[in-house]
Design a protein around this nucleic acid. Structure first.
Lengths: 112, 112
DNA sequence: TAAATATACATAGAATTATGATGTATAAAA
DNA sequence: TTTTATACATCATAATTCTATGTATATTTA
């Protein structure tokens, strides 16, 4: 696990990216996906993920529809039009930042 | 300029890296250096930099000695033994995190 | 020479956001 | 039947950067 501060500012980008690829996902699914994709290195906590999804929904980036699996509720989130647009800007910014940071901290590594 | 949150968790690593390369630097010099290295894209604010330097000093990563340029004070910071050791861990973690993040968000980019 | 800008430090309060702790409840597996 | 996994949620806390503000000296420019 990484020092928590590193994740800051990247969680939104991660969620946007996953939803851009998968069309609709529920919270727990996102959590499992991230854990899998990173070999357990990034483990989104409930207390981080659910508030983030709610905030992004409030900001108009996401929307959701509820489905019932038996008696259990599941909220499938998906990108809104706005979310699709802003995804591009978010990821661009993150990419640019990572390239810039690389220049300072790991000048020997070349990022395409 | 990047959305402020992105920088979180990276500032310490940036300072450690610069001081590892330059032996001793004062705050304003670090600020100018970062601005130059990033083409103005990362602009450390006074309110971020000076408290960070103080915290790192309190944590035993840095030490400083004051010099007077005319009447003006200058605090030259340098890495302590502890700072030299922890620099390695910090940068390793950051590097690992960036590679991991890349896998999720930019799977097409290969980081060495 | 006066004004503006750059240098150089600093702190306090605000804002952001991930986490830890805690809670509810159902389904599946041991 | 007890434990573990699934699935949601909230609140208080911690951590950290930024904004705003302040002090003061040195240099450049009008």
């Amino acid at each position: 696990m990484y020092s928590k501060e590193l994740l800051k500012g990247t969680l939104t980008a991660i969620i946007l990216k996953l939803l851009a690829e998968n069309e609709k996902m529920y919270g727990y699914e996102i959590s499992l996906h991230v854990r899998e994709l990173t070999g357990g290195k990034i483990h989104l906590k409930d207390g981080s993920l659910y508030p983030a999804l709610q905030k992004m929904t409030a900001d108009g980036l996401l929307s959701f529809k509820e489905e019932y699996i038996g008696k259990r509720i599941r909220k499938y989130y998906y990108l809104t039009k706005k979310g699709q647009k802003e995804k591009i800007a978010y990821l661009e910014e993150l990419k640019d930042f990572m390239i810039t940071l690389n220049k300072i901290v790991f000048p020997q590594i070349k990022t395409a």
